[in-house]
């Protein structure tokens, strides 16, 4: 008898714990900071600067969400994750969202029970080789030793690419991008393969970037974006629409500098709705009216975030390419705010 009471109590305690885990928004508010999973360091995307402050393209998404929810873009606890630890960290609730060069795939979305809220960078897998090898195309890589980050989609794409081209290769699996680069520059592998954005970022950090070339082939589609757990749709909506607010802000010409007062001066109703001067979009999300304004004011709109972290003015010098806004012929597009 006593045993059944004991287990009954345990079950109730367990169910209550389960129920409270679903409301991520309340947890974040109660904690006063957002736990955001990022990489262990990819220049331009997420890397601590000389003062130990996290900076980068993915970091900006975390800060925008924190500003929208908590009103403070610095109220973020950054949790560095590797390709191996990222999904466990998200599934277990250690982090509230993951903004870490993560490719949106069917099995991750459906089988691993995650919710990709959008795409903030359209990428593709590429190859980098030392210039002295004289290789000009990835189809000349038969027999090469290839360094890969283990636990990523690149590992599978690589196997597919070499198999479909009837070539052999020797894989060298490595845990983090930094270690892979170390082995690559030491000559332990001929080729380093990962997303082209990360290749460009790592190459920019080499002593002599011109000694290395990124081959022209793009062997896969890698739509990278932030993701959250399945099951908490309210939280998913907040992250999704914060990202969309940054994209829409670029379209509407709302920047970090003018977001504070353009709501009053603009005649565009969508600007007013976005910034909370009209309508009740914030309320629908469970936030206040100025959530998007705060998100934009942290590091600016999508275009500003891009230019300041990885754009052509920076060391990484990535062109906008397909990541231009849709009105410029790119793929960056947000559903309307209404």
């Amino acid at each position: 008898m006593k045993k059944s009471v004991f287990f009954g109590a345990l079950t109730v305690a367990g169910l209550m714990a389960g129920a409270s885990a679903a409301a991520t928004l309340d947890d974040v508010k109660a904690r006063g900071s957002l736990n955001c999973g990022v990489t262990t360091g990819v220049p331009g995307f997420a890397e601590p600067d000389a003062d130990g402050v996290w900076k980068g393209f993915d970091v900006a998404v975390c800060r925008a969400v924190a500003a929208a929810v908590l009103g403070d873009g610095s109220a973020v606890t950054f949790v560095p994750t590797t390709g191996k630890t990222r999904f466990t960290a998200l599934a277990s609730g250690e982090i509230d969202m993951l903004a870490r060069n993560t490719t949106w795939t069917f099995s991750r979305d459906v089988d691993l029970k995650f919710e990709f809220v959008g795409v903030n960078y359209y990428d593709g897998q590429g190859f980098m080789v030392p210039a002295e090898l004289g290789v000009s195309s990835a189809t000349e890589l038969d027999g090469a030793t290839v360094c890969i980050q283990t636990g990523t989609t690149t590992e599978l794409n690589l196997a597919d690419f070499f198999r479909s081209n009837g070539m052999s290769y020797e894989p060298v699996p490595i845990e983090t991008g930094a270690e892979a680069v170390q082995q690559f520059t030491a000559g332990a592998c001929d080729v380093y393969t990962t997303d082209r954005s990360a290749l460009a970022a790592q190459r920019a950090n080499f002593d002599t970037p011109s000694d290395y070339v990124v081959l022209p082939e793009i062997v896969s589609k890698e739509p990278l974006g932030p993701l959250v757990r399945h099951g908490d749709n309210e939280w998913g909506d907040i992250v999704r629409w914060t990202l969309n607010a940054l994209i829409t802000a670029e379209e509407l010409g709302v920047t970090a500098a003018n977001a504070g007062d353009i709501a009053g001066s603009s005649n565009n109703p969508e600007v007013k709705r976005l910034l909370g001067a009209e309508g009740s979009l914030g309320e629908m999300l469970g936030l206040d009216a100025e959530w998007a304004k705060r998100a934009i004011m942290v590091e600016g709109n999508y275009g500003e975030v891009f230019e300041n972290n990885i754009g052509e003015g920076t060391q990484i010098a990535l062109p906008r390419g397909v990541n231009a806004k849709w009105t410029d012929g790119g793929l960056i597009y947000s559903p309307p705010f209404r």
């Binding site: 390709g83 191996k84 999904f87 099995s107 991750r108 089988d111 691993l112 283990t150 636990g151 990523t152 590992e155 599978l156 699996p173």
Partner: peptide, 13 residues
């Protein structure tokens, strides 16, 4: 650990 506990674990979740 590299195959079953690494890549297989990560690719299948």
């Amino acid at each position: 650990t590299g195959t079953l506990g690494g890549i297989t674990l990560l690719q299948t979740g």
